[in-house]
Computed example of a mutant assay.
Amino acid sequence: MTAFSLEPAQLAWCAELRAVAAERLRPLADKGEPGRVNRALLAELGQLGLLGRLFTSGALGLCLMRESLAYACTEAETALALQGLGAHPVHAHGTETQRARWLPRVADGSAVAAFALSEPGAGSDAAALGLRAERDGSPGVASGGGPTRWRLTGEKCWISNAPEADFYTVFARTTPEAGARGVTAFLVPADRPGLTGAGLDMLSPHPIGALAFDAVPVTADDVLGEVDRGFRVAMGTLNLFRPSVGAFAVGMARAALDATLAHTARRDAFGGKLRDLQAVSHQVAEMALRTEAARLMVYAAATAYDEGAPDVPRRAAMAKLLATETAQYVVDTAVQLHGARALQRGHLLEHLYREVRAPRIYEGASEVQRGIIAKELYAAHQEAR
Rank of each mutant, 00 (worst) to 15 (best):
R24T: 03
G144D: 08
L211K: 09
L48W: 04
G137E: 15
A279D: 15
A114H: 01
R39C: 09
L348Y: 12
L117S: 05
V223H: 01
L41E: 11
A210D: 13
R36C: 10
P104E: 10
G86C: 08
W102G: 11
P104N: 11
N38R: 12
L51F: 11
P205G: 11
S281C: 07
P189G: 09
G199I: 02
L211Q: 10
N239I: 01
Y299I: 00
A249N: 08
S281M: 00
T291M: 08
L41A: 09
L117C: 08
R385F: 09
L195Q: 12
A142D: 09
E16K: 05
G236K: 01
A76I: 03
D201F: 04
E355W: 07
T56R: 14
Y362G: 03
D221H: 14
R354D: 13
T184C: 13
V223S: 08
E177M: 06
S160Q: 08
Y329K: 12
T237S: 13
G251A: 04
G32E: 13
A100C: 06
R149Y: 04
Q47E: 14
A3R: 14
E77H: 04
A178Q: 14
A3Q: 09
A301F: 02
R385C: 11
L54Q: 11
M287H: 08
Q336F: 14
W150V: 04
E7T: 12
G86R: 06
P104S: 13
T74F: 06
L377C: 04
P163S: 08
N161L: 03
G145P: 01
A301Y: 03
S5G: 09
C73P: 04
A379N: 02
V106E: 06
I361V: 14
T324R: 10
A12C: 02
K320L: 14
L85H: 08
R149D: 07
S110C: 07
G145L: 15
F171G: 04
R295T: 10
T326K: 13
L337R: 06
Q328P: 01
F241N: 10
L69S: 07
Y71W: 15
G251Q: 08
A340L: 15
T95I: 01
G130S: 12
T169F: 01
M287P: 00
Y362P: 04
A301G: 08
F186W: 08
A374H: 05
Q369F: 00
V170Q: 04
R314Q: 13
